[in-house]
Design a protein around this nucleic acid. Sequence first.
DNA 1: GGTAGGATGGGCT
DNA 2: GCCCATCCTACCC
Length: 195
Amino acid sequence: MPRFGPILRRSFYNRPTIEVARALLGKVVVHGPAAGIIVETEAYLGGDDLAAHSARGITDRTRVIFGPPGHAYVYFVYGMYECLNLVCEPEGQPGCVLIRALEPVAGIEIMRRRRPAARKPEDLASGPGKLTLALGITRLQNDADVTRGSLVVREPAEPHAVDIAVSPRIGITQCADLPLRFFIRGNRSVSGKRI
DNA sequence: GGTAGGATGGGCT
DNA sequence: GCCCATCCTACCC
């Protein structure tokens, strides 16, 4: 299993959500023995962003988004899947980044067992529902502190520059034109059509 | 290569 | 009761 760099500190997340969404590309999500490089993200903002779960205020589900940065917001969708977000902005202000795809780098065999439908290694975590299955992330990790513990985000073993592409977000109807999806151009694990 | 349709259940009006 | 920040299979080029 590769060694990775240091865990990202809380200050990494304590800034504008769009900045964090771009900066997360190339970092590594680690959960136990499984890990993947972040290759696709989406920003969900406060204010006028009606696509964000936080747009309708604080509820049992959304309170984590208003909490301190550097925590996981994991929600259940379409009756079957769970999606991982990382909370940004100072405590009290909503904002989070949806992790949409990972390139697997550790624990490949475990991921294969958790994702029997995946035909190729690059498809093990090539979508927001797929990556939570592959890494074993569930609502049990909702509100988990990702600056310590079993679910963390780290610097990669060998940092290198990434070519970032931008597009509208996937699968939403409100604010569907905003350029808030970020991905590593050409990466084979990016979900859907690669530009 | 491509897409249509169904699975499945919590959140919120 | 409707709406989902999705994925897989079947089927069609």
